[in-house]
Amino acid sequence: MSIDLKTIKHISRLSRISVDEKRAEKLADDLNSIFEFIEKLNELKTDDVKPLTSIAETTLKFRSDEIKSKNIREQIIKNSPEDNEDYFVVPKVIE
């Protein structure tokens, strides 16, 4: 299989990472060599193998639904690139 520029464009859109033409070509080369390496898995027949879903094989515990952090509004907003009052500011989404 081969990853072409069209696929790179598609993945970059899904990943929300903009990629220009020059980088797209380099990425296609890199990804092709990595996928060639990954294809080795096709040597194995795995139809009857159950996939590993949890490494520790323990059931996840429920914890009670209670508020532990209170009044941390300031902390939450502290690292924001842009904020206004208690809100994160983003480019306009509604015309």
């Binding site: 990943s15 690292n79 924001s80």
Partner: peptide, 21 residues
Amino acid sequence: VKYGYRAKGENLIDMYEKTRS
């Protein structure tokens, strides 16, 4: 949006894509 580096973008999606790029 909430923390870290932010690039300028023409709209929200453009901002995401440039920020991550």
